[in-house]
Write a protein that binds this DNA or RNA. Structure first.
Lengths: 194, 194
DNA sequence: CCGAAAGACTACACTACTAAAGTCTTCAGA
DNA sequence: TCTGAAGACTTTAGTAGTGTAGTCTTTCGG
């Protein structure tokens, strides 16, 4: 069920409308609750469409979603937008080895710089460049336009209801999943995470 | 964005609470609308958590999300749950070559059978085995329990409002994205797609 | 009966990741 | 100051899944 950001050659699949898909599920698995299934399917598909849209935005900017993940972690860290590879890896959920390669690519692309820490030469600092910061800001501008369009026909009450309902669902998941070991100062995320 | 199914060693990242993340975005990109950003971030994170939960269910069943995608396509096709590799590839959005490998793995695992079509021996039929069908049904059982728990504190009105709001958002995306070339009889989808 | 087209498979290369080994730096203790 | 242990990053090797291109077999029109 994950799917994340592999746009290279993967072409658009053919999809049933949500109502048709729910009908199939009812046909093949009678126990299903149509309304629950509709909500969940719509939510999943919406998230997927958003992922595709973000991916397109990033593609226009010439960066990958993996790159964006790193930019975001640095932005979240705040000025001076600087972290070590190990810390970045931890926040994003990668091994340090994988982060070395990501940073290689990103440094070549001019999105970040890599330099030895002056006070402790074991440490390496990955720092956002002006270009990297601008790419992130531009991605946010595109996202903001897109996201506002998503909610353009929802009034204030509908927006708060939606926010509340989604928040309650999220809490339900997190209560039932003891994954994120209760740390509150966490970070990172996936390609989206917008 | 499309994240699909990388459970092997990828460890849990550290994440900010939604409200903290929105605060960071406001700090670094003042134009952001906090409410819109909250809704979108919650939605994205919820989808990600669902993906993780489904991945865990599938892991318990001993199948990958790539496998599940194929099982679903065959189920959607309906009895006798049989399609050719090329057709499967088209519905899922893969090249036929990639599908050959997937089917290899799945046939070895006993989830599907591969056989030459009797009337046209160029064609190959991939057919769901009883085991494959049971795995899919079991995945649906687990998903149903999980999904019901997500909505367990939502009453009938809240559920319809949620369904309506999400549906409107999805339509907004699809209207603005001329991806799925208007075909109504489409299929497939991603790892989730529940 | 021949040649073109279609469907599936094979061979090869690529990307991105994990795990484990290796290198260099720092620091505590004698 | 030397020495050894611990830490931080990189390197190497191996894996999984995919795409591209080419091959083989069957089908079908002429």
């Amino acid at each position: 069920m994950t799917e994340s950001s592999q746009e290279p050659g993967r072409q658009e699949p053919h999809e049933l409308a949500i109502s048709e898909q729910v009908a199939v599920y009812q046909r093949e698995f009678p126990n299903v609750d149509p309304q629950v299934e509709t909500i969940v399917s719509t939510l999943s598909r919406l998230a997927r469409r958003m992922t595709v849209a973000y991916g397109r935005h990033l593609n226009d900017l010439g960066i990958s979603s993996a790159d964006w993940e790193v930019l975001k972690a640095l932005i979240v860290a705040g000025a001076p937008y600087r972290l070590g590879p190990g810390e970045l890896a931890k926040r994003i959920g990668l091994t340090p080895a994988a982060m070395t390669h990501r940073v290689d690519r990103m440094a070549t692309a001019g999105l970040v710089t890599r330099s030895r820490d002056e006070s402790n030469r074991v440490r390496v600092n990955i720092e956002l460049t002006e270009l990297g910061r601008e790419k992130w800001l531009e991605s946010m501008r595109m996202a903001a336009v897109f996201e506002e369009s998503l909610l353009q026909d929802a009034g204030p009450e509908e927006r708060s209801e939606l926010a509340g309902a989604l928040d309650r669902m999220l809490h339900r998941v997190e209560d039932s999943q003891p994954d994120a070991q209760g740390r509150t100062e966490d970070l990172g995320g996936d390609t989206d995470g917008h």
